[in-house]
């Protein structure tokens, strides 16, 4: 990375025709936005954001040395432009709009009893679902990589079903399964008196479904790469099988388990489609936070929706950073061994 920091004096490459095109485009977009803002319909925040984008792009291009592999400028321009226009500028709207609210407005929105109840439910259910996934994800990853049994390849292929199956489909399927007259519901509710659908337990079931592949797919490759030599070494040193698994195999899997847990947790926090059908959405009991945002939007309470979204985004970003740090940590660990 450091090499890019060095300016190459002596032979600065002439600006290519593409970069002129880019600057022209930037000026054009700037002019359009300026014209729109003159009409009084555009807030300064957006204007700033767009100019920040092009400033960034300009700096990046000016710093770019001529490189052996072609396409650096073009790919940088495309990547940054799309990233800003589609993701970053719209996302910044949440924070810019929240900043426009007064503290009391924000506090009122995010501390309303229904919102607080939803945080508790979303947080607890996501945490529990991720924990369930760690246990069963580990078992599934273990049996897929270490054992041979009929249907193993099918299990391996279908593990990703929660990724591929639209969440709405998962939602109605789980609801129908656990409804009082459903395949599982009739037994659980009729025989055992456990109410799953339209309760907090239903939220847990849906979030467990949605998070399962994360743990399996982060643990599986580590388990596959883990040389059985370590286990053989432990065995040759007199460790029992249980001791070997506990002291040699599991510690090697911790980073992957933790990463899988964090990913499943992060996904569960934001999940909407699979939960809303089975949750029953009883205020103060089984409403998840994303649903609160939708409810507020439907009541045209954009300010309230935005404030809660800002809270959720901050938590998500913190989780993203944590996951990144975890991955750096785990790759360092594997390098050392």
């Amino acid at each position: 990375m450091a090499e890019a920091a060095l300016n190459r004096f002596g032979s600065v490459p002439a600006p290519s025709s593409r970069s002129w095109l880019l600057w022209g485009g930037a000026a054009l977009v700037g002019a359009v936005i300026y014209a729109a803002s003159r009409g009084g319909t555009l807030p300064g925040g957006l204007l700033l954001a767009v100019y920040a984008l092009f400033a960034l792009l300009g700096i990046a291009l000016a710093n770019a040395r001529s490189r052996v592999l072609p396409g650096f400028r073009l790919s940088l321009a495309v990547t940054i432009l799309m990233l800003f226009l589609i993701i970053l500028i719209p996302l910044s709207a949440v924070f810019i709009n929240t900043a426009k609210l007064s503290w009391s407005q924000i506090w009122e929105a995010i501390s309303a009893p229904r919102a607080v109840a939803s945080y508790k439910l979303s947080f607890t259910a996501s945490l529990l679902a991720a924990a369930v996934n760690v246990v069963f994800g580990l078992i599934l990853a273990w049996i897929i990589t270490r054992y041979r049994f009929p249907g193993r390849k099918l299990v391996d292929a279908l593990i990703d079903l929660p990724f591929a199956l639209p969440t709405a489909v998962a939602g109605i399927a789980l609801t129908a399964l656990y409804a009082p007259n459903g395949w599982f519901g009739s037994f659980l509710e009729g025989q055992l008196g456990i109410k799953v659908a339209f309760s907090q337990l239903g939220v847990l079931v849906a979030l467990t479904f949605i998070g399962l592949p994360f743990v399996v797919r982060t643990v599986q490759p580590v388990l596959e790469d883990l040389d059985t030599e370590y286990e053989e070494a432990a065995a040759s040193l007199g460790a029992s099988r249980a001791q070997t698994v506990w002291k040699v195999v599991l510690p090697a899997l911790y980073p992957a388990l933790l990463t899988g847990f964090a990913m499943a947790f992060a996904r569960a926090l934001g999940e909407y489609g699979s939960v809303i059908f089975i949750a029953g959405n009883i205020p103060l009991v089984s409403e998840i936070t994303p649903l609160i945002i939708i409810t507020k939007l439907e009541q045209y309470d954009y300010a309230g929706a935005t404030a809660i979204a800002a809270v959720m985004l901050i938590v998500s970003f913190a989780l993203l950073l944590a996951i990144n740090a975890l991955q750096v940590w785990s790759s360092r660990r594997t390098e050392r061994s």
Binding site: L6, R8, F9, G10, S11, R65, S66, V68
Partner: peptide, 17 residues
């Protein structure tokens, strides 16, 4: 394949830097 920070490369006496 790599750009020098300074200096010249001459091919048959011709600057190819």
């Amino acid at each position: 394949l790599e750009q020098a920070d300074s200096g010249r490369i001459l091919f048959n006496g011709e600057d190819a830097s």
